[in-house]
Design a protein around this nucleic acid. Structure first.
Length: 422
RNA sequence: GGAGAGAUGCCUGAGUGGUCGAAAGGGACGCUCUCGAAAAGCGUUAUCUGAGCAAUCGGAUCCAGGGUUCGAAUCCCUGUCUCUCCUCCA
């Protein structure tokens, strides 16, 4: 949610920034400003009438109940009461219309975010090198199924298509990844959260997934939704709360499965574990003051890249163009890992500064030293998406004989260096 | 799942349909006193929002949303949450 005052006061500037991620035809700030003015006018009208009405209260209390004067007053006031109600209704309508227009606007991109969509994403750096194989490599499914780590057929049997089941050492490896990330986040002073997976509609709204992605999340019969990412839970922790400035930044992380309908269908080449209805992800999250949020974004990016590096995988960092960022994000980095078989990079972490966009929706503020209540800034970052990394690991560390080397950092957790068929 | 009770300011807690943004106590903060502290006394102590340079004036908020009424913290309905008892359980 954008600040209506900012739109009114800096229309040109806001418009220019939003055009980096919106088509001109979809953006009509004048209409919004018009609505805002209309609402304010109606509000004035209502308040004047209401003040008048309240003014009579004292008099009514003093006048004897059954008296002639009393009855006459009531007749007059009935008329006024009707007007007050009408005015109130008009304010409500105008405000609703305003909110509707306002809440679909995406966040204002940061100055250093370029306009346009995916095609304008910028690769900032590539780390490590593409592995070279002296044999014909298999894709991750072949490696994983060959070693009995993944059982797609039975997963599909019990849960339908686009589901996966890890088995034996495969399940252990996935779990070891999660453990590795958890350990690193705890070392860095992040607090671990285990949130509920079934969230209310309101939570989806605050996080910004609703109403836009209503079709993409799973709904259960009592009206709650299955979280599509732990971000949805973490972004709602302090909803309607006033935080203490000294407590900021608040650094959190959570491991949860992420549930997504992926209703739009699958790209045909996204075989196997690349896109699933349920995948594992560790999510990092920060609540900061506006002054702290830029440094926090860099910190989160560093954390994410360090984890990938720890695994010994080749990756690159890109900065997303305005229209490729999630609607709430003002600036987003992606960490993309190299998938040797597909010969493409795939996102394993998306690191976003949402600034006060979610805080406005969720009414999350902090008290400054001067006693002023200000919206917090919020940041989210995968740290990391384990199911995707599994793909990269299976493809990158495979050997000619079908066995798989285990990344060094995971060896102590798993108690072995290599996975092979007996 | 069944039965009942409740939701009021930073906290505890009172509240009659009108003069209630709300008693009282506590806490916190400030001042007086003191070398300092304690104690005591006095005072201050919600948020959002509109107009105004300002003093100030107006509106909203007693869980949320509807309703009744000239007027609602107070009455009615619905929802949410909390607590107690029973039931069921990992």
């Amino acid at each position: 949610m954008l600040d209506i005052k900012r739109i009114v006061e800096n229309k040109k500037e806001v418009e220019q920034a939003l055009l980096k991620r919106m088509k001109k035809d979809d953006l009509d700030l004048d209409e919004i400003i018009e609505k805002y003015k209309e609402k304010k006018e109606k509000q004035q009208e209502y308040e004047t009438l209401r003040a008048k009405q309240k003014g009579f209260n004292e008099k009514m209390a003093k006048v004897e109940k059954g008296s002639k004067e009393f009855k006459e007053l009531i007749e007059d006031l009935k008329d006024l009461s009707g007007k007050v109600k009408e005015a109130e209704e008009e304010v409500r309508e105008a405000d609703e219309e305003l909110q509707e227009k306002l809440e679909v606007l995406p966040n204002i991109p940061d100055d250093d975010v370029v306009g346009g969509g995916k095609e304008n994403n910028r690769v900032l750096r590539e780390i490590g090198e593409k592995p070279i194989f002296d044999f014909k490599i298999k894709d991750h499914l072949e490696v994983g199924e060959g070693l009995g780590m993944i059982d797609m057929d039975r997963a599909t049997k019990i849960a339908g298509s686009n589901n996966v089941m890890y088995r034996g050492i495969g399940a252990q490896l996935e779990w070891a990844l999660i453990n590795y990330f958890i350990g690193e986040h705890i070392k860095d002073g992040y607090q671990m959260i285990m949130p509920p997976h079934l969230l209310t509609e309101q939570s989806g709204y605050t996080a910004g997934q609703l109403p836009k992605f209503k079709e993409d999340v799973y709904w259960v019969s009592d009206g709650n939704m299955l979280l599509p990412t732990a971000e949805t839970a973490l972004a709602n922790l302090f909803r309607d709360e006033l935080l203490e400035e000294e407590k900021l930044p608040i650094k959190l992380f959570a491991y949860t499965p992420c549930y997504r309908r992926e209703a739009g269908g699958y790209r045909t080449n996204e075989r196997g574990l690349l896109r699933m209805h349920q995948f594992n992800k560790v999510e990092m999250f920060q609540y900061t003051t506006p002054e702290q949020s830029e440094a926090a974004l860099e910190e989160l990016l560093n954390k994410a890249t360090r984890l990938v590096e720890g695994l010994g995988l080749h990756y690159r960092v890109t900065q997303l163009a305005a229209d490729d960022c999630a609607a709430g994000a003002a600036k987003t980095y992606d960490v993309e890992v190299w998938m040797p078989f597909l010969e493409t990079y795939y996102e394993v972490s998306s690191i976003s500064n949402v600034r006060d966009y979610q805080a406005r929706r969720g009414n999350i503020k902090y008290k400054t030293g001067e006693g002023e209540n200000k919206y917090v800034h919020m940041l989210n970052a995968s740290g990391l998406a384990t199911s995707r990394l599994m793909v990269a690991i299976l493809e990158t560390f495979q050997n000619k004989d079908g066995s798989l080397n285990i990344p060094e950092v995971l060896q102590p957790i798993l108690g072995r260096k290599i996975i092979k068929n007996k």
